[in-house]
Amino acid sequence: MDIFLLILGFALMLLGVVGSLLPVLPGPSLSWIGLALLYFTNAVPANYWILGISFIITALISILDYVIPAKGTKKFGGSSYGIWGTNIGLLVGIFAPIPLGFIIGPFVGAFIGELIYDHKDHHRAFKAATGSFIGLLASSFMKFVVCMVFLGLFLWVVWTNKAGFF
């Protein structure tokens, strides 16, 4: 059973890294579940500090994932229409059958939202859409770093407890 949990945990860690770049998958949450599965094995002693701190980090990152693109839109002069456009564009972009729709969607959504707000000021709409794009990139980078740290922690714990597995 320990080997099964180890393999499943590692698969979730890898899926979490992929999910940190694709908004369809909750990357940090999947990585945390993979890390928690590692501690359910008999080979690894329970460490509630690591699980607790990593859970808090996962919760914060998950909340910030939705806040950062909207804040980027606002920071670059966007209105509430641009923020709503960013969120709607992100959802449409995820499910749209176009390559990189999850990147293009928030940009186009913020741009259209700002044009609805003020159809005469294309420059401000483009600036707000750029803020949305930068916010999305910052959010994805932050999730990627957290997932890579969790993966490194996973591998380190497996390595230090390898005698219990193999």
Rank of each mutant, 00 (worst) to 15 (best):
I3H: 14
I3S: 14
F4V: 14
L6F: 04
L12M: 08
L22V: 15
G27M: 08
W32K: 05
G34R: 13
A36N: 01
L37K: 03
F40Q: 09
F40T: 09
F40E: 10
T41C: 02
N42G: 15
N47C: 11
Y48P: 02
G52A: 06
I56Y: 00
A59I: 15
S62Y: 02
D65L: 00
G72W: 11
G77C: 00
S80L: 15
G82F: 06
G89D: 02
L90H: 00
I98T: 09
I98F: 13
P99A: 12
I103V: 15
I103M: 15
I104S: 07
I104D: 07
P106R: 07
F107M: 08
V108F: 11
I112D: 02
I112C: 04
G113M: 05
G113L: 06
L115P: 01
Y117A: 13
H119T: 09
D121G: 01
H123C: 00
R124I: 09
A125T: 05
K127I: 00
A128D: 08
T130Y: 10
I134L: 11
L136S: 13
A138I: 15
S140Y: 08
F141L: 15
M142C: 05
F144V: 15
M148I: 12
F154H: 14
V157D: 11
W159H: 14
W159G: 01
N161W: 08
A163G: 02
A163Q: 11
